[in-house]
Design a protein around this nucleic acid. Structure first.
Lengths: 187, 187
DNA sequence: CATCATGCCTAATGCCGTTAGACAGATCAA
DNA sequence: TTGATCTGTCTAACGGCATTAGGCATGATG
């Protein structure tokens, strides 16, 4: 009976990512994933620590992907351009990989899972880079990064939840918000 | 056998709210709710249209409660004070009623459920009030409200998910972000 | 060729939401 | 008071989900 399918953590993760991006993180269930992989759901436990482990792996992968996207956006820019480019890349990533971006929101209580915490921290560090370049230091950076992340993340969440009912252009709203942030963040 | 418990939509909702605020919206299941109410879960269907209906009712209630809180915060303020008071009230509501605030995030696809859409729109309208008072009109109000909501909502979500790892004061981060927004929003 | 580890399987458990249908108690008409 | 009807709760049952235990064939290893 159909043994040794050749399942692999990477295969499983790839399929999970595809499913998450196509139908949302909530659609990523072990049962559906197994079906897509031509396997029974208990078989997945050989590669992943249950649903929770899968979601954690997704979050880890998502953090790395987001970090890369932001780094790329910063490449060859300077100062204000960098901040704007970063903001656009952030939203572009969320649009291109909605499920992965969702995975980024996984709550991680302080003590547990230092690896995931570190991965998230690396993303935060990249966001802070253009701010430090502009001369911010110490807690000023932290506060500024928090404001930036809040605005970007909030915008994306509201946008995806169809929270912007009125008819004005959402793209323009985003650009204006970024203008506002850049201006306020010592521009 | 134990008939006519006297269950009521309000009783059900109150218990659901208590559960949501105590353990998060995800903990609000028909099974647990029924147990708390001393009833079997199918009995809830006489009062609520399944889990989805319950969540919708929670969202509706939450929108009303948030709107009231924001209106109260605006009472007797003017201009800049109003905006700051509103922002603080927004976060205070999310802290005091985490489950209810979570219910506020229910995604509602444009066409369906006009009643819920209208309820959410009323909250948005209150947020826009101090901006209109300061002379903003037309799309300027819409864009400004979107920026404001994004920042406030994003901050709250990140805060609750323990997304602010570093040690700087979260309260100060919030005040600074509000400063930034007020300054940028034509202050 | 014999052994063993591994990757997949089936079976079973328990939780969940949901539906169908029975029934007791309240309400109301006569 | 009696009897019919309505309604809120119940039990039973189904299907989907995650998860665990245990079996077994295949591939790797000596």
């Amino acid at each position: 009976m159909a043994r040794r399918i050749g399942l692999t953590l990477d295969r499983v993760l790839d399929e999970a990512i595809a499913l998450a991006d196509a139908e949302g993180l909530g659609a990523v269930t072990l049962a559906r994933l197994a079906e897509r992989l031509g396997v029974r759901s208990p078989s997945l436990y050989a590669h992943v620590a249950g649903l929770d482990g899968l979601q954690r792996a997704l979050a880890l992968h998502a953090a790395g992907a987001l970090k890369s996207a932001l780094q790329d956006a910063l490449e060859g820019t300077s100062g204000l351009d960098g901040l704007r480019s970063l903001a656009r890349a952030y939203r572009a990533f969320a649009h291109a990989h909605p499920g992965l971006y969702e995975a980024t929101q996984r709550a991680v209580t302080p003590g547990e899972d230092p690896e995931l915490s570190a991965a998230f921290l690396e993303v935060v560090e990249v966001v802070g880079r253009p701010l430090r370049k502009r001369g911010l230091t110490g807690d000023d950076v932290v506060h500024a990064v928090r404001a930036l992340r809040s605005a970007l993340h909030g915008f994306i969440v509201l946008e995806r939840a169809h929270g912007f009912g009125l008819s004005a252009s959402i793209d323009e709203s985003f650009e204006r918000m970024v203008d506002l942030l850049i201006a306020g963040l010592h521009g």
